[in-house]
């Protein structure tokens, strides 16, 4: 169903999610957070980093209600569903889903909290619900 290529830079994230922990990378040089890529995170590629657990709190940076499936055949019978770019308290954006029964209640800037959703036997995905 999912054709996920976990690699060195995402393994801890996906392993953490299985234990209901939202994991981010944190620069040991300046304390800034990032996930996978350091682009626009004020972290340089040669910084040393550690994996830390995030608070799970954030707000909606942007979102889209998708009326077509994307990314995986899993979504063929899930439309419409909401994809959100969530700005976490740690100043890292994460691409995720916003879980709600009321699509109209979703707005940019609203506070959200992580909600771990099991997508398959192998994948638990950190999703978000409105606070």
């Amino acid at each position: 169903m999912f054709n996920l290529f976990i690699d060195k830079d995402s393994r801890v994230f996906w392993e953490g999610a299985k234990k209901n922990r939202l994991m981010l990378q944190k620069s040991k040089n300046n304390g800034n957070f990032f996930l996978y890529s350091v682009g626009h995170s004020n972290v340089a590629a040669d910084h040393e980093f550690e994996w830390v657990e995030a608070s799970g709190n954030g707000k909606i940076y942007s979102y889209t209600v998708s009326y077509i499936p994307g990314g995986s055949k899993y979504y063929l019978d899930k439309t419409p569903y909401i994809i959100g770019s969530i700005l976490l308290e740690e100043n890292v954006r994460i691409m995720s889903n916003i879980i709600t029964d009321d699509i109209k209640s979703v707005e940019i800037g609203k506070k959200v909290k992580v909600y771990f959703k099991k997508l398959s036997d192998e994948i638990v995905f950190p999703c978000f619900k409105l606070v």
Binding site: L4, F5, Y36, S66, G70, G71, S72, I83, M95
Partner: peptide, 21 residues
């Protein structure tokens, strides 16, 4: 056809979230 592509690199999160690309 975009539904069978590997979820890879930084877009792995987008694809698991079902973001049509």
């Amino acid at each position: 056809n975009f539904l069978d592509r590997p979820a890879i690199f930084s877009s792995q999160f987008d694809m698991i979230a079902g973001l049509p690309s």
